[in-house]
Amino acid sequence: MTVKPDWLRVKAPQFERVGKVKDTLRDLELNTVCEEASCPNIGECFQKGTATFLIMGPACTRACPYCDIDFEKKPQPLDPTEPLRLAEAVRRMGLNHVVITSVNRDDLSDDGSSQFVRCIEETRKLSPKTTIELLIPDLCGHWDALATILEAEPDVLNHNIETIPRLYRRVRPQGDYARSLELLQKTRELAPWIYTKSGLMVGWDETEAEVKAVMDDLRKVDCDIVTIGQYLQPTQKHLGVKQFVTPETFAEWRKYGESIGFLQVVSSPLTRSSYHAEQVQTLMKQHPRSKSYHQSSVR
């Protein structure tokens, strides 16, 4: 299947706003997942003045066959100036909510956790009112690295489950479905005041029942937010699209997710894990959480 249906066509962005965001990113020498992963929403997000920052890259130590991020280049040592440059971009762009993600850095002894922490610290110095969402890899199951990240207290901890268990070997060969669920469960246990989030892509011949089963698994580990979007093949060398899921089916998954207790379900063909991520601020006002309350309740 190569012809996209009408519901996957996006409007061309206004160049003036997009160009301003790109100028900021180039000036500060920052990468974004919007560009590196060929996100279809790049025009809309750049036009609104938002971006999802990609740290520790652009080279990745894994070769997921759906992802357009480069895995052929050799990963470089971490840049100690990157966190400050990222924080400066957040300040210049006036972001109320920022999403920070990374490539996989399985080559690092701490899986990159210290760089996430420094990005949080520097951002809070320059933009103390900005809420911070981290979209992290599975950290190879090193829960001490996860604990290090959580101690820095991001507002939202996101880790994508990506696909259904049956397709893991084909779609995410270096990942592990149970490990991803455990990461979310550990986050809830270690820092119950932090909002947890996960997402998956569809279009690889999964059934509606299988998608709902993943949503059930995410709720079993008390995941707060789930995103579901249509997979689009970045290039001919990547996994192909097996089916284009209809907007009606995405709407059904949204209703199902809400019925089983997710605080927020973002489900549509163009949804990506950080698409409209700033909406979490409304959720945080409606369902406030306090670190001091959780700590006092276990004494």
Rank of each mutant, 00 (worst) to 15 (best):
D111L: 06
E162V: 12
S109D: 14
R188C: 13
L218N: 10
E121T: 03
P192N: 13
I136P: 03
S127M: 14
R170S: 14
T123S: 07
L184A: 04
A152Q: 00
V202H: 07
I164K: 06
R179D: 11
G112P: 13
L108C: 06
P137I: 01
D111E: 14
I161N: 09
V214W: 07
S113G: 09
S180M: 11
Q230S: 03
R169Y: 07
D138W: 03
T130A: 09
T187H: 06
H159D: 00
Y168G: 02
K186V: 12
R166G: 03
A191E: 01
V171D: 02
L135A: 10
N158D: 14
R170Y: 09
L134D: 05
Q174C: 00
S109M: 13
G141V: 05
I161G: 04
D155P: 05
W204G: 02
C223N: 11
W204N: 12
Q115V: 11
V171I: 15
Y168L: 00
K212W: 05
S198Y: 06
E210Q: 15
N158Y: 07
S114M: 02
T207I: 03
W204M: 15
I228T: 08
L146G: 04
M215E: 10
A213M: 05
Y231K: 15
C119Y: 05
R219C: 08
S113A: 15
D216N: 14
L150M: 05
L135V: 14
D216A: 11
K125I: 15
C140K: 08
E162I: 09
T130W: 04
P154G: 00
D111W: 09
E206C: 12
K125S: 12
T227H: 12
R179N: 13
T131Y: 09
I225F: 14
A191G: 06
K212Y: 01
Y177S: 11
A145D: 13
Q185K: 15
I161H: 04
E182M: 15
R166M: 11
H159F: 00
V214G: 04
